[in-house]
Amino acid sequence: MKPISGSPVLTVSSSPHIHCGRTIKGTSLQILLALLPAAGFAVWHSDLLALRVLALSCIVAVIAEAGCLKLMKREIESDNYTALLCGLMFGFLMPPSSPWWLIAVGSSLSIIIGRMVFGGLGGEPLCAPLVGWAICKVSWPELMNFDMSMLTSELTYPLSQLQNFGPETLDEYSLKSLLLGFQLGGSGAAQSGAILLGGVYLISRKIIRIDIPLAFVGGVSIAAALFYTISPVDYALPVYHILCGSTLFGAFFLATDSSSSPVGHFPMIAYGLSAGILVIIIRVYGAYPDGVPFAILLANLMTPLFEKIRPKPFGGITNVHLQR
């Protein structure tokens, strides 16, 4: 039928005709907001050193993504802030004293190898910032070692103290000072209290689900408690494992990375638990003082397996309903 003249031109669409309003851009902005307190703490603790790291890392990531998209002849989508977020998370993992080129290389590799070679946003099989981090860690271990790169700082790195001198050294860190970030570590990742605040904010805004962080922290606690009960003199209390290093950053921000984490409640919990347990295993037996990044990368690799755990579909495993 012809619309009678003067009648409005209606938009047609097929159902559902409404959307909850949640967007990729909004989600990244919320996560960026949640990271702000930790970034502030990082800058404060490092006398502005971290500011340089974080800013450079963000800028490089955005440029790297835009460059790749240009090469791939795709629309530039920097305005969804996911590259910025990836850059910031990479910067959070780096020592505040890192040389500029290390940040530039790591941040761009996070985007290129971590994301773009897999087809861009949404294709990442591994948490992208961790990919850049792992490359740097393996290639320039001395620069990525917090004790060696941060000699001038009065702060110390609790996890290497724990690895080298045993759990009694941890007594010098009060829980309050750990929460306030008086420890060496990744620029933002070591700000446990601020990270926790950001994580709780994300959960309260329903940006991330509680499953993965809870299971992750649970995994860390259970494994650490197990070791601690075996021998309290050799192993640290679980609470130190949670507050030292990047455990909380991993739990709330890295492990929950949308495309590399599994979907579904049960797979999410299994994934979080595995990653958490791996953290402690690496910290106890591994060469790296902080097991979080590698634990999450390993758990990422298991994501497809976890996703195989699916409930039966409505109406059973069959497609006969198609004809009805």
């Binding site: 669409s13 409404i18 959307h19 989600t27 946003l121 949404g122 294709g123 689900r209 979907v263 409505f314």
Partner: peptide, 30 residues
């Protein structure tokens, strides 16, 4: 009646893997 511009319409964008659809589907699908 839905007035134009109230809500974002569907976009041709890639799945970011957040899993919301899977958690919300009453038929337990992916």
């Amino acid at each position: 009646v839905i007035h134009g511009g109230d809500d974002p319409v569907a976009k041709d964008s890639p799945c970011v893997g957040c899993g919301e659809c899977v958690l919300k589907c009453p038929a337990r699908l992916m």
